[in-house]
Structure formats: structure tokens, C-alpha cells
Design a protein around this nucleic acid. Sequence first.
DNA 1: TATGAATGAGTTTTCATTCAT
DNA 2: TATGAATGAAAACTCATTCAT
Lengths: 202, 202, 202, 202
Amino acid sequence: MTEPRNRDTRTKIVEAARDLFWEKGFNSTSIADILSRTQVHSGSLYHFFPGKQDLLVAVLEWYRDGIEENLLAYAWAEVDDPIERIFALLNGYRVMLLTSDYAHGCPIGNLALEISEPDPRVRELIARNFSNWVGAVKACLDGASERLPEDTDKQALAEFVLTIMEGGIMQARTHRDIGLFDRSVAVLRTHFDMLMGQRQAA
Amino acid sequence: MTEPRNRDTRTKIVEAARDLFWEKGFNSTSIADILSRTQVHSGSLYHFFPGKQDLLVAVLEWYRDGIEENLLAYAWAEVDDPIERIFALLNGYRVMLLTSDYAHGCPIGNLALEISEPDPRVRELIARNFSNWVGAVKACLDGASERLPEDTDKQALAEFVLTIMEGGIMQARTHRDIGLFDRSVAVLRTHFDMLMGQRQAA
Amino acid sequence: MTEPRNRDTRTKIVEAARDLFWEKGFNSTSIADILSRTQVHSGSLYHFFPGKQDLLVAVLEWYRDGIEENLLAYAWAEVDDPIERIFALLNGYRVMLLTSDYAHGCPIGNLALEISEPDPRVRELIARNFSNWVGAVKACLDGASERLPEDTDKQALAEFVLTIMEGGIMQARTHRDIGLFDRSVAVLRTHFDMLMGQRQAA
Amino acid sequence: MTEPRNRDTRTKIVEAARDLFWEKGFNSTSIADILSRTQVHSGSLYHFFPGKQDLLVAVLEWYRDGIEENLLAYAWAEVDDPIERIFALLNGYRVMLLTSDYAHGCPIGNLALEISEPDPRVRELIARNFSNWVGAVKACLDGASERLPEDTDKQALAEFVLTIMEGGIMQARTHRDIGLFDRSVAVLRTHFDMLMGQRQAA
DNA sequence: TATGAATGAGTTTTCATTCAT
DNA sequence: TATGAATGAAAACTCATTCAT
């Protein structure tokens, strides 16, 4: 990633695009939306980004590069237990749903479903964002190894947690009812309890 | 639902819209796409549907009204065991992912995330489609009551299955790797095994 | 060519495009130019023509289909001698140069040089327009067979006449001096005189 | 012509502009095209040239100033007979058509027809380029005076040769058939033969 | 001179929708 | 109901040019 000299304009554009894609989706966000929010002229935007897709790429890179400081640091600020960190992470999305009145789901998940014929860069960046998220959860599971059955497929379990998050958000937003999210998380909690119970039983 | 006189044209339009929304998404499908696929003229389309949103409504009604014959009957043709029916249903989506080379996910889930400011009819129809799907799974769980712990929240568990399906599809499509779907389903299977093991143990 | 029902709008567009392409060239004519001259809305234009290239195609078809009534009938109204008809045709371009103050050259020739990467339809239509023009001249030469040497390559000679026309116009416009056109035509006249003199001599 | 200090950059720009105008035409060549081909920045280009027109002027000056070394020296390297030099010159364009697969015609002729409202400098420079070319041919004719009829208008005949060249190239490019060029040149050859035959007969 | 960001009018084209027959 | 022309706002993007450092 070359470091642009004038970070201001470029950054302003990426941040506006990030927010608008999140609020309205990629296709429903027009370049004009981004221009009017940033007070930047079209020529300037196209100076930095050859096309709308490239803006999407930049946004996805922003998420990829900032997962630690923008997401995990915040969610885990006051939680140390690795298993609880997983639920703290999920709780972050819960809070977002409630405070945004169900407007804000998972930004990556939205894009994943909206972009039906993604250019490879986009698909790979979405995949990478998912992998990093799963990787963070997997690290928690690794940190709780001794509480889980020895034959636990931790990678699969971490992916499972992302699955719950995405599926739970989708249902909660649709029903405008946090219960849909909460109940899926509750079942996940049960699942962890059962796994950890097995270990104890053994 | 009022029964239109000329079912042919109206039906042709709904089916084309349904397929295009599935393939390309709602926003990326233009009225012109639908017209050219159906060989219907714009005047005719707007005779039946006041606007694009109404077409979406009709498509969602089609899914809602046809869940039994278009989805469940097919998935459950050769499966009787209620728990296996749940996994047979999930397997239907698995097959769809593979045969469409990850182009076709869950049509309702796609729309759920794509429509950011849905008119109420749309949101409610998506919710209703989810509810019906969950209801079908819940009926399976009810049919397997005696194999599950007595205090199982079957509604929550059914919602959880939908969560797995949507989250699993999202990840599998993104990575273009069915493993992402399979592993989440496998963890769900483990979950059921543990639940049923508890019952046996009791 | 299918005959459109509403010839008015389509014809208005083609005629405006034809005139503008002639006055300003293809690239320098914007769709907006055509719209404002015709008082037609962009949607209507694109209803008839998928793109700007297709408008060019229509304009070239107009020239191709109308060579007889729009060009030859006019130039040959009062001339019967086949050799004189050739010079009458050339004189038509001479008059056009003078009355338009060198703004209007050969519309086909202009396009031939301007379109550097033509789509095949365009190139073939330009070629066809040239061929038809050459064919008309060749018919004159055929009508004057007995005055020309027997071994005259009449096709080549007809092409030569087009060559003179295009090259003469180019120079006259550049110098804004009809002398450049006249002198090339005069040499052509000499050439015909020599050819016909040979015949007489024989 | 003031001699710029940094010939490299200025020259690079002119050469790129010259080539691009030749390949794509003036209007179809964007400043961005020139910048990306030269790896020069817009500020630098506008340092040397106030605007795009001025670049065109510089290109036309390049042609004007280099006709001897870039065109004539090359075409006449191995030809001494003045009449043959004329046909050698024409043959140079023939080779260019063939080796470029009809992409490259006469650079001046293209510009002559493309620029519909030229600023006076441009028109005069194109005219001057034509005059110089004609002057070179006229010099050949002067050198062959004794083989031509005494009353031959050599200026007109030289202009005629340019006419043939431009008209022949236009047709050959349009038809993508060198025959169209060759046949016009062949007729010109006949013309010269007849002229020279007259002299001999006298 | 070089760099490259900024400008903003302009480009072609697409869109959902309306309307006349 | 069917046809398909008309509407006009809005889309993504390009352009030649200017300006600040």
C-alpha cells in the first residue's frame, strides 16, 4: 500500500464511502452521495480511485487493516477470559443493532451478500475480512484449549461463531427484534457449555 | 391474492423477477432486464405492478406461498426422520451452492441484507418467509421432542438452524469453498448429538 | 430495415445527427448537442438507438439509401452527357464548399478519416457509400465507353474520380481556397481529354 | 522557435502527442493519454504548452520542420529520377498502410479533416505542411521539365499528386484494400505517361 | 521545473416510470 | 390488456485545465 501524501482527501472519501456502504449498501450508494458528504469534487475522487469498485476495495482494506484497533480492541477492552471475549465480540454487534435501530448490521456481511458478481479483489478481501475475524475467535479458542474437548475442531468452531453472528444479525434486522439475535447466541452459549461440560465430565 | 385474468403474463413477470433478483440482486436487476427476459412491454408490466417494489412484494409472496411445494416437498421427498429432515433441508442449499457454482444462495437472505430501507410490506414478507422456514424446522423438532432435552427451547433451536444456514451460505459463497458450509453444519450436527446424548444420559 | 411507426422522432434524430456530424464531426458532436437541436429527451434517443455508434450507423444508412435522390438526382438534373455528369457531380461539392465557406466537405470522407477504430458496421457502411459513389461514376464511364480507349480500366478510373474529389476537398478546405479543388479537377479534365484524344487518334 | 532548456521532457511530450494524434486522432486523444504514455505530470505538460491546441501546433511544427529529414530523405534515399521520386514518395505511404494494417494514413490529412473549427495557427500549419509537400513534388516536376509538355501547370500537377495520395489513402483504409491506393496511383502513372508521351510526340 | 491534487463542467448512458394509442 | 414511445432525473465516469507546494 503506497502511502498517499495528502491523506486528508483520500481518507475523507474512504470514510464516507465506508459509512454510506454500511448505511445504504454498495449499489444504493451513488458517487454523488459520497461527493456531497465529503464536499469533494468528482475529479478528485477519480484522481484517487479509478472507479467505484476501487473505492470498495479501499473500504474493505480499511476494515481488514483495522480489525484490531477498530473492532477487537474496543470489544475486548474490559474482557480477558477468552470464551467471554467471543461473547463480548458478539455483544458488540448486538449493541450496534440496538443503537442504530437495526440499520447497522455487519458491514462485511452486507457486502458479501450484495456483491453478486464481485471482481476477484473484492471477493478475496471479503474472504480475508472473514478469515481475520474467524482467526481472532480461533485465537480465543486456542486460549481456552484446556476447557474444550481435546478433539474440538477449533477452526470449525470459530467459523461457526461467525456463522451465528451473521445469521443472527440477518434475522434480528429482518424482524426488528433483538430476540432473534439473542436466542441464537444463547444456543451458542449452550453449545459452549455442553462442550466445556464434556471436558469436565471426562 | 386477487386472481388476475391473464395469469400467463403476470406469472411470467414474477418468475423472471424472482430469478433475476436471485441471480443479480434486487437493485442490480433493472426493469429493462425483466422486460427483455420476458418479452413483455413496459406498459404491460406496469399494468400489473405499480412499481418495482410491488414486483418484489409479488416475488416474496411467491416464496411465502410456495414454501411447501417448492422447497419442503422436494427436500423431504425421501426423508422421514424429523431430525434428518432438518439436515436434508440444509443439504438442499448445499447442493444449490455447488450446482450453481456459488451463484445461488438463499434468495430470501440475499434480499434481507440488500434492502436497507425496505418498505414495511417488504420487511414483513421477508420476516414471514423466515418465520415459515423456522416454523417448518420447529415442526421437525416437535416431531423429535422425545429425543431432545425436555427444557429445549425448540423455537430458539429452529431459529438457530436458520442462522446456521444463512451464515454458512454466506461464508461458503465468499470463500467459494463448500467446506465453510459443511463445517458449520457439522458443528450443528455435534450440537444435536450432544442434545440428544443428554436426553439419553438422563 | 424495419419501418418504425413513429418516423417523426427517429427521423428528426437521424437528421440532426447527420447535420451535426457533418458540421462538427462525430467525436465533437455530443449526444446533448443532438438532444438540444431536436428537443428530444435522452431516453427517447436511447429508445431508438442503443448508443452513439448506432446513430452513426443510421446516418450512414441514410446516406447509403439516399444517394440517388439526395445527391445524384440533384447534381444531374440538367446534365445528360455522361462525362459531364462526372464533372457536374464534382461541381456539386465545389458549390458546397463555397456556400458553406469551407465548412462542409464530403460527409463520408470526414467520417472515414475521423473514425480510427471503427466498429465493422461503420467501416463497411463507409466503404459501401464510397462504392456506391464510385459505382455511379463508373456507370457514367460505361455510358461513355465509345469515347474512351478500349483498354480503359473504368473501375479504376471511377475510383480515381473519388480520389480527386476527396483529395481536392481536403486541400481546398485547408487552404480555404477553391483553387486547390479547381486545379485538381482541371488536371482530371486534362486526363479525360487525353484519354478521349487517344481514342480519336486511333 | 525558442529552444526550451529541457528538451527531453518537451520532446517526449511532442513525440507522444504526435504518435497518439496519428493513431487515434486529435479529439480522441486525451491529455491523460499523453501523460500516461510519457510518464510526465500534468503540471509539466502545461508548463510547456498552454493548452491542447498548442500541443497540436507543436506537432504540426514538428512535421513542418522535419519534412526533409523525416520524410523525403528516407523516401528518396535510393531514387534519383525526379518522376520516380514522386512515385517513391507515394510508395512510402503505401508501405505505411500495409505495415500498420491500415492504421496509419497521412497524419496531416487526418488532422485536416478532423479539425472542423481550427484555430488559425492550426489551419495555417496544416496548409503549410501541405504546401511543403506539394513544393517537394513540384521541385521534382521542375527537375523533369524537359520531359513534360511545355505548358504543363506544374504547381497544379504537384497538388494533384497530393490529391491522389490523400484520396487514395482514404479509400484504401476504408476498404482495407491496398488495391484502392494502387489503382489510383496507377491512373496517375498513366497520366504521367500520357503527358510525357505528348512531349515526345511533339 | 516537477509533482500531483483539485476543479467542475461535460460525457455517454441507464433508470424507473408515464402516457397515448 | 398490449404496445412502445416519451420522460427527465440520475448514474458512473472523463475531460482539459488550474493551483499549491
